[in-house]
């Protein structure tokens, strides 16, 4: 995918010591708001707002944040707020994030990608990152289309549509949440960017989760998806009830079945069950930590 994107940054880099982040801090070292290249009304604006709120709440500092953006409209989000950011190949975001978090458990690592990136070209990474369970938060900006390349269908296209016959070319949408549960994810949630405050509360829980936290965010594409609109999501979304026990896997499946039967979309934390994991340290990286490694014990093996 190419990115027809001409961002000329004129922001000033600011050197600052560690300080308590304020909401304003997130606007530094970022593409200025009037240069943001999302269509007016794009759902990704809501994700951006929710993300800033959640990061502020969690007192994450930009220097300690590493965002890995996917390819597509949504992946641009990495440049629209302060913090370190990386952007590689289509479908690769979670695998980069995996390596980064394995190396640097001290960083807040989040992956920000679209539904095509995550569930089509990157599904191989999604499935296995669910199993590997690195402490990475993934926010999928799910809009059912490839916006950047002008509206082709993604794996979640067709949600809620009354289609009588499917074909190999146009298969029914699949459920991100069911895939995540099947693959062994330890945190599975869904949010709606039309309600950034609620979304940010879910992101906060995801950031607090010790392990891989998947948040599928309904983020309407106002330009290419005229069906799954804000109104449509408002009509079909429904908060997960306070009585739901997210630590119970059976209850999570039950909940999905129940919502599906009723033609509703759950919003909230569907499953959360941290796994016992080995403690890991930041990997050595400074020359003084690496210089002079004693390999003599290894040489013994070959005498």
């Amino acid at each position: 995918m190419s990115e027809p994107n001409v961002t000329k940054s004129n922001g000033q880099s600011t050197v600052r010591a560690a300080q308590k982040p304020s909401a304003k801090l997130w606007d530094e070292n970022a593409t200025p708001r009037h240069r943001i290249q999302w269509c007016p009304g794009c759902g990704d604006f809501g994700v951006l707002a929710a993300l800033k709120m959640a990061l502020t709440k969690q007192e994450v500092t930009p220097a300690n944040l590493l965002m890995v953006g996917g390819i597509g409209c949504s992946g641009q989000i990495r440049n629209y707020l302060n913090g370190n950011a990386f952007h590689g190949t289509h479908g690769g975001a979670l695998a980069y994030a995996l390596g980064a978090k394995m190396s640097r458990p001290d960083l807040t690592v989040i992956a920000l990608a679209g539904d095509g990136d995550t569930f089509a070209i990157g599904v191989e990474n999604f499935v296995h990152v669910c199993r590997r369970d690195p402490g990475v938060m993934l926010v999928i900006m799910d809009n059912g289309v490839y916006g950047l390349t002008k509206g082709q269908h993604s794996p979640t296209h067709g949600r809620g549509m009354d289609i009588k016959e499917w074909s190999e070319e146009s298969p029914p949408p699949f459920s991100p949440l069911r895939l995540a549960l099947t693959a062994g994810a330890t945190f599975v949630a869904q949010s709606f960017s039309g309600d950034p405050k609620h979304a940010s509360e879910i992101y906060v829980q995801a950031l607090q989760h010790k392990g891989f936290a998947m948040v599928n965010d309904f983020s309407p594409c106002v330009t290419y998806n005229k069906f799954n609109t804000y109104d449509w999501y408002r009509e079909h979304g429904e908060d997960v009830s306070a009585s739901h026990d997210p630590a119970n896997l059976d209850a999570a499946w039950e909940l999905l079945n129940d919502f599906d039967r009723r033609g509703r979309l759950p919003l909230g934390v569907v499953y959360r069950h941290p796994r016992a994991k080995k403690a890991v340290n930041r990997l050595p990286l400074w020359p003084e930590e690496l210089q002079g490694a004693d390999v003599r014990p290894l040489l013994q093996l070959f005498r």
């Binding site: 590493l66 890995v68 990386f86 590689g88 190949t89 690769g92 695998a95 980069y96 994030a97 995996l98 390596g99 980064a100 978090k101 394995m102 190396s103 640097r104 960083l107 690592v109 191989e124 990474n125 296995h128 990997l283 050595p284 990286l285 690496l290």
Partner: peptide
């Protein structure tokens, strides 16, 4: 094969020799 190199690139982005 792709996960391998991408994870290694992620480690390198995070500052570690990979």
């Amino acid at each position: 094969e792709r996960e391998s190199i991408r994870a290694a690139l992620g480690a390198a982005v995070a500052g570690v020799r990979a």
